[in-house]
Design a binder for these strands. Structure first.
Lengths: 112, 112
DNA sequence: TTGACTATACAACAATACTTGAAATATAAA
DNA sequence: TTTATATTTCAAGTATTGTTGTATAGTCAA
């Protein structure tokens, strides 16, 4: 997880709509949902949904697969896990006692 | 941690500059840094830094305290911990097997 | 092949965020 | 009290992001 990817992921999560989309996809993991299902559940115009899904896909926050004429979207849980790890590492730098388990090995880099 | 706060925090982290500021403050926890130190370390015009610090403060990502004519900024590690918990809970919904292993080693960041 | 359906691409516009210099505020030092 | 320092506020402009309707490209079903 480098800074550039982290920034892109935070951008992806920094919108109420996109956060709703992601949470809905997590809730429906590992099946995912097709675009139309998301649009109707969130009551969004399809072009607007498509705009947000494109951004999320480009950030690798979600994964898309074609199914006939449908596009099925799934939450990318592993990249989310990496983001949590990144955030934990950042949060813990120099302050391990404030973070998760004290016995967890944390060896962080210098952040420049 | 409600959705609104989470969104605000993600917004705060969704900029290279603000992420740099936050990581620098984490690195200097619990002492923190005064605004001028941050500005010179990141080579930012003071007005621009002030803009970002204000946003981060408003999102409760950082905490500010006056010290004479200086403003000392500190990372709000507890809200960051709450955000990590929120993200973990969201990520894990229905998929606990994909999330934290108790004995997982944390692999740390690349610079940038 | 035709017609219906799903979703995206494009274009125009609206809204929001970012950057900067000048001015203001507040504290400290001389 | 006067001057210097630290930081923020304000105003203006630039840049980016978000929203919407229309048009387009695929896919399916008859």
């Amino acid at each position: 997880m480098d800074k550039q990817l982290a920034t892109k992921l935070f951008e992806s999560l920094a919108s109420g709509i996109r956060l709703d989309i992601f949470r809905m996809l997590v809730k429906h993991a590992p099946t995912g949902l097709v675009a139309g299902e998301i649009a109707s559940k969130l009551d969004l115009p399809p072009t607007n949904l498509s705009f947000h899904l494109k951004a999320m896909t480009h950030a690798s926050l979600v994964i898309v697969a074609q199914e006939g004429r449908y596009q099925r979207y799934r939450a990318n849980l592993s990249v989310m896990q990496s983001l949590i790890d990144y955030l934990t590492a950042e949060c813990c730098t120099g302050n391990p006692e404030l973070c998760f388990d004290a016995d967890k090995a944390i060896t962080c880099c210098d952040t420049n």
